[in-house]
Design a binder for these strands. Structure first.
Lengths: 226, 226
DNA sequence: TTTCTATATTAATAAATTGTAAACTAAGCA
DNA sequence: TGCTTAGTTTACAATTTATTAATATAGAAA
């Protein structure tokens, strides 16, 4: 099978399981990265930015639920798919697992076929709207995969937060984003930064782009318009 | 729990199960519709357009997989969430179920808690906030998501309170809103402002719109009419 | 007509929000 | 270590919005 361009990180302390899953998912066309404990999982996740993370609940160092909580607390991993994997079939941990923010929960013993179906099902559902779409409005281009913005064909260098903020607004032209929405989307729920922070970033974007494309809606938020 | 505004259709031939699931999901704030066989499920699905359909695999008339295939073949149900429910725990049907286009697969005996977690998890992932409705009356447009008002296609800039007030009145044309209602809806219960405040805002709206669309009902309140 | 009452209007004031510059902090890197 | 850059915070100015108060006006009733 050809590559699906999706990266999956698997964390489990049992080498056998790791190998079986890796083999099967690789055969399906996924790029697979493995980790043998919680800390390694977090470390690798930050580097490779996987599309899906499969976490064994029972692991040395940090367990699966802890890993999930830590990752979910960071904006980067807010949208990442997470599947729990465990021998525990008791109802409590099942519920707790899903409430931590996981997208699915598979109990051992694991059937590779079942796991693959679930992985495919998750991707199928999520892929509806390709997130990394290049946005083009008039003389402005925003390319999230290249992390590149051009105005009249000329490159403009934006910092990470600036880029994310611009991309968010531009992804829905005209729609007003409340300051809260912006904070949640760009900074994440847990991070607490002041309101002025948004203003400053908006200002930098306006400055760097040299375009009047962000409108302030007083008392409400900001919107993109060209 | 308050309503989540989500409709769920459950199809199962066992009345007990139907009742237990209905009870639990209703308690969670979902609107639940039931069907006792495949044909009824398809019929009701077309009428109520549920957000999620929970299908027992083993059912009289058409079985769950057949129902799923039929529904999925119609554009209306391409995006509808589907969960299979079954006693069959064999791998084959599990895989086939997900490949038919289901989003999840839960095996009996069903734990209400687990089912609810899975339902919530699905909605959490898919949930895109329902757009506020754009109001259009004659040459006037009010778009709350863009926070934009146009008259004859020309933009009119309203301040936050002005906008909220206009949107409230315009959302029920003809209906008279008592001054108290207006205060509650726009200013909230806790805030205490004088009556003149409303007048002033009404005036500004009339002024900015240049339309005679808000009628004063002396001694009662205001109403929108075009 | 006069009087009364509720609303409209206007201007003045208070409150809230945003823009901006500059200082500060944290993280990455030579 | 010190340099560099991104990101955040702070403090204040500028601006907009909300509210009040004072006065005018219109319409209904006496």
């Amino acid at each position: 099978m050809e590559s699906k361009g999706k990266k999956i990180l698997i964390a489990d302390d049992e080498p056998d399981i790791l190998e079986i899953i890796q083999y099967n998912l690789t055969k399906e066309g996924y790029e697979v990265i493995t980790a043998k404990d919680g800390d390694e999982a977090i470390g690798k996740a930050k580097i490779v930015r996987p599309d899906l993370i499969i976490l064994d609940i029972m692991m040395p160092k940090k367990n699966g639920v802890e890993v999930c909580e830590i990752l979910r607390s960071q904006p980067t991993f807010k949208e990442t798919l997470i599947i729990f994997l465990t021998a525990l079939s008791d109802e409590g941990s099942h519920v707790r697992g899903l409430e931590t923010g996981a997208d699915d929960y598979v109990t051992k013993p694991i059937s590779p076929k079942v796991l693959i179906s679930r992985v495919n099902a998750l991707f199928r559902r999520v892929n509806k709207e390709p997130e990394d779409k290049v946005l083009k409005v008039e003389n402005l281009t925003i390319d999230p995969s290249k992390f590149e913005v051009t105005v009249d064909g000329k490159d403009v260098t934006l910092a990470k937060k600036e880029f994310e903020l611009l991309y968010l607004l531009a992804s829905r032209p005209g729609r007003v984003f409340l300051r809260n929405e912006i904070l949640n989307q760009v900074w994440g729920n847990e991070v607490i930064v002041g309101d002025r922070t948004i203003d400053v970033h908006i200002r930098k974007i306006r400055q760097k782009l040299g375009l009047d494309c962000i409108t302030t809606v007083k008392g409400v938020g900001y919107k993109f318009n060209l």
